[in-house]
Simulated assay, not measured.
Amino acid sequence: MLIRVDPALPEPLYEQLASGIRASIVDGRIAYGERLPSARALAESLDLNLHTVLRAYRMLRDERMIELHPGRGAVVAVRLGHHTALAGAIHDLVDEARLNGIGESALLALVKAAYR
């Protein structure tokens, strides 16, 4: 699961995190029944406070997107996403390009070249 948060944005970090997870569920990058990382592991990987992750998880629980099971973690509770393989691949491609400093125009050129 590749989620990004930006402390420079005006949106609170927990909302950014919840939005990223929600988008991943909706487009199928995270599937129904899939277990999410533990709050502690996700906090460490994103360099966030544990309570920030817990707040995002509780927000998603209240929206009925995930279920929280004490001692067992968080699990996706909804079946969403159409064309999940393609949508997930596109988002993963864009995320990977951003992580590697590849701009939008360069990425589009690479995709066009792959079609030839």
Rank of each mutant, 00 (worst) to 15 (best):
M1Y: 11
L2A: 04
I3S: 00
I3Y: 05
V5H: 09
D6Q: 09
P7N: 12
A8H: 15
A8N: 14
A8I: 11
P10S: 09
P12R: 13
L13P: 04
E15H: 02
Q16W: 03
Q16K: 03
L17E: 01
I21P: 07
I21N: 02
R22E: 14
R22C: 09
A23I: 09
S24Q: 08
V26E: 13
G28H: 00
R29G: 15
A31G: 13
Y32R: 06
Y32G: 04
Y32E: 11
E34H: 10
E34N: 05
R35Y: 13
R35N: 07
L36E: 01
P37T: 10
S38D: 12
A39D: 15
A39R: 04
L42I: 04
A43I: 07
S45D: 12
S45Q: 14
L46Q: 11
D47G: 04
L48E: 11
L48V: 12
N49V: 13
L50K: 12
T52V: 12
T52I: 12
R55V: 02
A56W: 01
Y57Q: 03
Y57F: 09
R58N: 08
R61K: 05
D62Y: 06
E63D: 15
E63P: 01
E63T: 03
R64S: 10
R64H: 14
M65T: 06
M65D: 03
I66Q: 05
I66G: 01
E67G: 03
E67W: 02
L68D: 00
H69K: 10
P70R: 11
G71Y: 12
R72E: 08
G73Y: 08
A74M: 03
A74L: 05
V75Q: 06
A77K: 05
L80F: 00
G81H: 02
T84L: 00
T84G: 01
A85R: 00
A87D: 07
A87C: 15
A89W: 02
H91E: 10
H91F: 14
D92H: 12
D92V: 04
D92K: 12
V94Q: 13
D95K: 10
D95E: 15
E96I: 11
E96Q: 11
E96T: 14
L99Q: 15
N100K: 14
G101N: 14
G101V: 08
I102W: 09
I102A: 02
S105F: 04
A106M: 08
L107G: 05
L107S: 09
L108T: 08
A109T: 06
L110M: 13
V111Q: 08
K112H: 08
A113V: 02
A113H: 05
A113C: 05
A114R: 03
Y115M: 06
R116F: 04
R116N: 08
R116C: 00
R116T: 10
